[in-house]
Simulated assay, not measured.
Amino acid sequence: MPKCYYPWPTIDSPIANAFDDEEKDWYDNDYTFISQEGIKRCKSQVLSRVATYMNPTCDSIERMRPCARLMIYITLFDDYFGMTPAKELKAIADRIYEVMMGEDPRPDEIGILRQMAQARKEWIENGMPRFWIERVSINFYEFILYGMMEEIPFKQAETTIYPTLAHYLSFRKYSIGMWPYGDLIDPCTNFALPVHIYNHPVVQRCRELLSLIIVIQNDFASLKKEIEIEGESLNIIFILRNQYNLSYQEACLEAMRLHDAYGQELNDLHESLRFLDLGAFQEDTYNHIYHIKLQISGCANWYYSSGTNRYEPKGFIVPKYGREGDDIVIPHSIFVKK
């Protein structure tokens, strides 16, 4: 499969494997809605390393811990609820926002909410301001609302249907989860971008490019697995083939061309920050965009070097509304009892 490369460094984390044992306890205590076979698959994916690989300059276990929690719960949320009908998914999104903003889950609610609440408490203990808590909560909410929910018509179609490339990128940049992933730069660097800096068009475009680049990076990483899935349409290679009548090779070349163009744009915007007047936050903003770039190369490093088996056959858990023939049964009586 084609691999992605970048004109900036790939840095190794000094605490890359720090949560390998701890995350197993999280699965055993708070992910009991997944079957034992599903838990076994999760543990072999080393998902906590996504946080450390993507934020490689952070050497603080305390600041990294809630980030590792998010990496796991956003990934498994997507895996498990990816086939959930839109109405039900909207109710789940509303409850997640409440918990991430401050409510504690009730004892009868699904354990993944306890991970979300604990991450929020740990971020606050580490000094993250309220505006940042609201930022990551909204971005998680939009990951569901504008990402996962927009994928449902394609995932639940009786016959294979493909979005156009423009439509795919419009929702996939949310469903890839990189808006909340990008928020983790702040606790990992121990500096929260002020609201007016975060909202600057150049910063927002850099965050969007983080998402778009990882969309293509992820589609290459998962291509070997997804090419064997009947009816799978949500991969840029398949979409390019369908829309432009390309061969696999041609589609891969075009996808990589787009990927590299986005990477160059991000590099150019990073350099252009020196022409902006960001006052006292000039250096902090430059450092933030630098860490966006490190997240991208770090994610690729995780795909290729971490030892994860996530993209091997039967690497995923089976979603709540899975296809017939799935070999893992995941009981799910309720998510919300309100």
Score class of each variant (00 low, 15 high):
Tyr6Gln: 10
Pro9Gln: 05
Thr10Lys: 07
Ile11Asn: 05
Asp12Ile: 09
Asp12Ala: 03
Ile15Lys: 01
Ala16Tyr: 04
Asp20Cys: 11
Asp20Gly: 06
Asp20Met: 02
Glu22Tyr: 03
Phe33Gly: 03
Ser35Gln: 08
Gln36Lys: 13
Gly38Lys: 01
Ile39Lys: 15
Cys42Met: 14
Val46Tyr: 10
Ser48Arg: 03
Arg49Ile: 02
Val50Ala: 01
Thr57Asp: 04
Cys58Gly: 08
Asp59Leu: 06
Cys67Val: 13
Ala68Ile: 07
Ile72Lys: 02
Ile72Phe: 10
Thr75His: 12
Leu76Val: 10
Asp78Pro: 04
Tyr80Met: 11
Thr84Asp: 06
Ala86Val: 15
Ala86Ile: 15
Lys87Pro: 01
Ala91Leu: 14
Asp94Leu: 02
Arg95Trp: 00
Glu98Met: 09
Val99Cys: 04
Met100Asn: 11
Glu103Gln: 11
Pro105Glu: 02
Pro107His: 05
Ile112Lys: 06
Ile112Glu: 02
Arg114Ala: 10
Arg114Ser: 12
Met116Phe: 14
Met116Tyr: 12
Arg120Tyr: 03
Arg120Met: 07
Glu122Cys: 00
Glu122Gly: 07
Glu122Tyr: 06
Met128Phe: 00
Pro129Gln: 05
Trp132Arg: 11
Ile133Trp: 05
Arg135Ile: 05
Glu142Thr: 12
Phe143Asn: 06
Leu145Val: 11
Tyr146Arg: 11
Thr159Ser: 12
His167Phe: 06
Leu169Asp: 05
Ser170Lys: 13
Phe171Ser: 08
Asp186Ala: 15
Pro187His: 13
Thr189Cys: 14
Asn190Met: 08
Phe191Tyr: 15
Leu193Ala: 12
Ile197His: 13
Val202Trp: 09
Glu208Thr: 15
Leu209Tyr: 14
Leu210Cys: 15
Leu210Glu: 12
Ser211Val: 12
Leu212Lys: 15
Leu212Thr: 13
Ile214Met: 14
Ile216Trp: 00
Gln217Arg: 00
Phe220Cys: 11
Glu226Ser: 13
Ile227Pro: 05
Glu230Lys: 15
Glu230Ala: 14
Glu230Ile: 13
Glu232Met: 03
Glu232Cys: 07
Ser233Asn: 01
Ser233Tyr: 06
Ile239Phe: 05
Gln249Tyr: 04
Glu250Ala: 14
Cys252Tyr: 10
Ala255Val: 03
Arg257Gly: 03
Leu258Trp: 03
His259Ile: 02
Asp260Met: 07
Asp260Glu: 09
Ala261Ser: 12
Gly263Met: 09
Glu265Tyr: 04
Asp268Arg: 09
Asp268Glu: 13
Asp268Tyr: 04
Leu276Val: 01
Gly279Ser: 05
Gly279Thr: 07
Gln282Glu: 07
Asp284Glu: 15
Ile289Ser: 07
Ile289Lys: 10
Tyr290Asn: 09
Tyr290Leu: 13
Gln295Lys: 00
Trp302Ile: 08
Trp302Met: 00
Tyr303Gln: 00
Tyr303Asp: 05
Thr308Ser: 15
Arg310Phe: 10
Tyr311Arg: 05
Tyr311Ile: 08
Tyr311Val: 02
Tyr311Cys: 00
Gly315Gln: 09
Ile317His: 06
Pro319Ala: 01
Lys320Met: 00
Lys320Trp: 06
Asp326His: 08
Val329Lys: 07
Pro331Trp: 04
Pro331Gln: 03
Ile334Leu: 03
Phe335Pro: 00
